[in-house]
Design a binder for these strands. Structure first.
Length: 749
DNA sequence: CTCTGATGTCATAGG
DNA sequence: TACCTATGACATCAG
């Protein structure tokens, strides 16, 4: 298992690096942390979704009224986890920029960063989103809250670049909605990240110490919690070490759009500081990618043109100026070749090639990359015409060279990569249809093709997808989608806000609070608490609360008992007192009635909740009849079982909700993978076009000893294992191509 | 009246 | 073994 894990992890990393080198962007992190349970669990360990934990032990506590000796404050734990997940989701590659800025704004009141920071105009969106989450916060932000969006816009518009200057109210609302949705996504996605789990547990310790703040989960409570997290983050006590670095890097990178010369340093910071752990490295790689992404998005208004169809000009240079500075500067030429777009310009391939006398030379050697050894070790000698020139894939490609031309770049993709792609194909195959693909492709054509999960088009697409899925699911049950929470004020909405983090009622209420601004949820929550979390200590103080939800006293004749216990009538307030007693009586459970009838000298709560030793001590203190003892034991058994049943049902419900959320996440992942596939196919096709044109050009310049051009039907170019390019007879090339095709098939058997 | 959801209770398995 | 917990099945009640 370990080796498999290592293999997969390393393989994915290598694959990512490889793809990034050839210009295809992949967000490995989403693969690792998103909802792909098998892969995720292989790499990160088993998920906690169905791990049996003694949750009831951990949760039999009414918030704020002491913690059961056996329990940790699980709710706080999950809340902290959720908050951390959100926080961590902020600097995600695929997370909209609004989230990034949300974090920045949140830091403002404490670090007073905003004053000195040339924050981008997007900050205003985040401030709005943040306020939605945290509700009324400290005074500084609260005033801004009341000012509203337009004021924020005006305020920040002064320093804001034109990117966001033309944001309308609708835009902000949309961003806000997306932001909220991404909170859910982020939380759901992050919980399985092992490194996070560890870090969050650290935070959890702190939070458990301050658990007494939970007596009401109002806005202040959640905000206090959030502040706790932030304070931790600032002091560095329990936060991931990389986190401040990430933030700083991002905050530096954002304004860097106006000052490109400083960009590279900013961009490099995440990588250069990353010496902690593989996860940090990976995270920082993500950071780099995201920053590159942001820069590309913001600098180039037509960002979609950059990757695949931009002319080899300034956009390219700005885009690739990073490459030599990144730790992985293996082959800039390759990078450029793949990213260069559809241009037929020969210079796309590499500076080396560019500088070489291609025009006059009849030799093929210039085609050999200067640092080809690294490539050769990976790619070997291949002739993957089938990959780059499958007739069905590049239908729109100009097939002037025809299928008879071998693929000179075939060797650039090794079999492992092919396997990965095939795996993805397999994973996507189900439900993937060409119409969908073409639609997606159209979308990318019209919209940004820059990134799979960039802040613009993918988010909008995924949001629409997510909303559709959530709305469909909300019709089937009390959905966990945030959309239902805003409209619902029933007790089920508390459940509906169940996070993907497990059995956390606090996370639910926090969610609800995030979505609704803590308006009108309190009664439902208290009801929820009463129903599900009967704290023994609390109940002994307020025994009438024990069965406030339902009173199943149907097996008894309460009137028979009442007569013995009711206060003597005759006072002025007799009527009301009787009513009160009646009410209290109705609140009593069957067993309480029985206990009264049997004159049990202590409360049912003690009977039920005392540890065995104390319980036995208690029994020994009194002279009890056999019937009384039997009843007491029954009460204890039933009481414990009642709580167990409540926990069981809650757990069941949570499981269902988690499954529902998982389904939604998987649907999102599926959509994302489909988008990625389309994108891969597009880039592949464009690469093929480029390679084809290059091939034609090179082949067309070749002359035999008589100065005549070679016939494409008789000769073909092929990469050899040592990086050289050979001109070989067509028959030989075909044979080798067949061999190459057979190999993967054999291996798969 | 039935239906349905919530709750309590019992029996049982398993830690 | 005693105790505790989890859970399926069933009963009951309220809406």
């Amino acid at each position: 298992m370990l080796s498999l894990k290592k293999y997969l992890t390393e393989g994915l990393l290598q694959f990512t690096i490889l793809l990034s080198l050839i210009g295809v962007r992949v967000d490995v992190d989403t693969y690792l942390t998103s909802q792909l349970p098998p892969l995720r669990e292989i790499i990160l360990g088993p998920s906690s979704a169905y791990t049996q934990t003694q949750f009831h032990n951990l949760r039999n506590t009414l918030d704020g009224y002491g913690i059961h000796p056996k329990s940790i404050d699980l709710d706080n734990y999950f809340t902290a986890r959720r908050l951390l997940s959100q926080v961590r989701a902020l600097d995600r590659f695929q997370v909209p920029t609004t989230e990034v800025n949300a974090w920045l704004v949140h830091r403002d009141p404490e670090g007073s960063v905003s004053g000195s920071q040339p924050s981008s105009g997007l900050t205003l969106e985040s401030s709005s989103g943040l306020q939605d989450v945290t509700g009324p916060d400290n005074g500084v932000r609260e005033s801004e809250t009341e000012q509203g969006f337009s004021e924020d816009l005006e305020d920040l518009g002064a320093v804001a670049p034109p990117v966001s200057g033309d944001l309308t109210k609708e835009d902000i609302d949309l961003i806000d909605i997306l932001w909220r949705q991404d909170i859910d996504l982020g939380a759901g996605r992050e919980i399985f990240d092992y490194s996070h789990r560890q870090k969050e547990q650290d935070v959890d310790k702190d939070l458990c110490d301050g658990a007494e703040q939970d007596d009401t989960w109002s806005g202040e409570g959640a905000e206090a919690l959030a502040r706790n997290l932030l304070v931790d983050g600032e002091t560095g006590e329990s936060f991931p070490a990389q986190f401040p670095a990430d933030i700083s890097s991002i905050t530096e990178a954002v304004p860097s759009e106006s000052e490109p010369p400083g960009l590279q340093n900013h961009l490099l910071s995440p990588l250069l500081t990353g010496t902690e752990s593989p996860f940090d490295l990976e995270q920082q790689w993500q950071d780099l990618m995201s920053i590159m992404e942001m820069q590309a998005m913001e600098v180039n208004t037509s960002a979609s043109e950059i990757l695949y169809s931009a002319p080899p000009g300034d956009p390219l240079s700005t885009n690739y100026s990073l490459a030599p500075n990144t730790p992985i500067n293996q082959n800039v030429s390759l990078h450029q070749a793949s990213l260069g777009g559809c241009s037929q310009d020969f210079s796309l391939f590499s500076p080396e090639v560019e500088s070489l006398p291609v025009a006059g030379g009849s030799t093929l050697l210039p085609l050999v990359p200067s640092n080809s050894t690294s490539l050769n070790s990976t790619f070997g000698s291949t002739n993957l015409a089938g990959l780059f020139f499958p007739a069905q894939l590049n239908g729109s490609a100009n097939d002037t060279a025809g299928p008879e031309l071998p693929d000179p770049l075939g060797g650039l993709l090794d079999e492992a990569m092919l396997d990965e792609i095939s795996l993805m194909d397999l994973a996507i195959e189900e439900g993937f249809n060409p119409v969908q693909a073409s639609q997606l492709e159209e979308e990318f054509d019209s919209d940004s093709g820059l990134s799979l999960d960039s802040s613009h088009s993918p988010s909008s697409l995924s949001s629409s997808e997510g909303s559709s899925s959530s709305s469909s699911s909300s019709s089937s049950s009390s959905s966990s989608s945030s959309s239902s929470s805003s409209a619902s004020s029933s007790a089920s909405s508390s459940f509906s806000e169940e996070g993907a983090v497990g059995y956390s009622s606090d996370s639910e209420t926090l969610d609800l609070e995030e979505a609704e601004g803590a308006v009108g949820y309190q009664p439902e929550y208290s009801k929820f608490c009463r129903m599900s979390y009967q704290d023994p200590a609390q109940l002994s103080c307020l025994p009438y609360l024990e069965h406030v939800g339902h009173n199943h006293t149907y097996n008894m004749a309460p009137s028979a008992l009442d007569s013995a216990e009711l206060p003597a009538p005759g006072t002025l307030k007799k009527g009301s007192k009787e009513k009160q007693a009646d009410f209290l009586d109705k609140q009593m459970s069957r067993d309480e009635h029985r206990a009264r009838a049997m004159k049990i000298p202590f409360t049912n709560d003690k009977i039920i909740n005392l540890p065995v030793e104390e319980f036995n001590e208690l029994l020994s203190k009194y002279q009890l009849s056999e019937a009384q003892l039997s009843l007491i034991r029954d009460i204890r058994r039933r009481g414990k079982n009642k709580m167990a049943a409540q926990n069981c049902r809650k757990r069941k419900l949570d499981t269902i909700l988690n499954l529902e959320r998982d389904v939604e996440d998987l649907q999102r992942d599926k959509a994302r993978l489909l988008r990625e596939k389309v994108e891969f196919l597009r880039s592949l096709r464009q690469m093929k076009q480029k390679v084809q044109s290059l091939y034609q050009e090179v082949f067309g310049r070749l002359r035999d000893e008589n100065g005549r051009p070679y016939s494409p039907s008789q000769y073909a170019l092929q990469y050899a294992g040592d990086g050289s390019v050979l001109l070989i007879p067509r028959t030989l090339a075909d044979q080798q191509a067949r061999r190459q095709e057979r190999k993967p098939k054999d291996r798969r058997k």
